[in-house]
Amino acid sequence: MSNRNIVASMKPLGDSAIIVQLGEGISPTIHELVSNLSTLVNNHKFEGFIESVPAYNNLTIYYNPVVVHHSQKNKVAGHASLTSFQKVSAFMEVLVQQIGTNLALEKRVVTIPVLYGDEFGPDLEYVAQYHGLSAEEVIQLHSGAEYLVYMIGFAPGFPFMGGLSEQIATPRKKTPLLAIAPGSVGIAGKQTGVYPLETPGGWQIIGRTPLDLFLPAISPPTLLQAGDIIRFTPISPEEYYHYKEMKQ
């Protein structure tokens, strides 16, 4: 992989950010490129770098164009009058060509306990009926798979995951609910996710985890990060309340 030439396109997201596009669609291969580039840029920060944010197939770099403009270090040889965007593009281009020399980052595996069904998973029966399955079969399919966290977005610690079985992929609700409880585990189309905060949402809610996904007092502030492997494991109401008590 280290020998091949990776093609990246650079597009501005306004005057203070750049999107480095590393492919199209959703695949674990492109995800590896994105997370490698993210690691590279965080280990080789240019002057004016603010932060990087991974998505499915691109990485956004936020920078301060005023600092980049005045920086002596960021000068590109032979180009005196480049814009800040051009300077950052040139810098990122060099990093893109270094992807592949540090592939196979170690993956964290995070197990999320879930109390499925009943009042914590009010849509479990709907999902089961929609596919002609029993509730038990839906739980087995959901907790029997491994999921890759492609990115975090929408809310702090909210994972965009791939790997949901087609057998339980279910359209989202026509009318979103105004408030979904924190910890709710849901399905929307081919995606599954966990709500970290009380937010409005239209996902089919099949269960709830007692774990906190957003932990503002610690660093990093979220249970899940892009690149993690997730497993869901069914728990009983007793176990659920035991987890809740342990947290206090």
């Binding site: 932060e51 936020y62 975090i152 809310a155 702090p156 970290p196 990093p220 979220t222 990060q225």
Partner: peptide, 10 residues
């Protein structure tokens, strides 16, 4: 609050 957008923190 910069630096935590990758965790979904606005």
């Amino acid at each position: 609050r910069y630096g935590s957008q990758k965790y979904g923190v606005i």
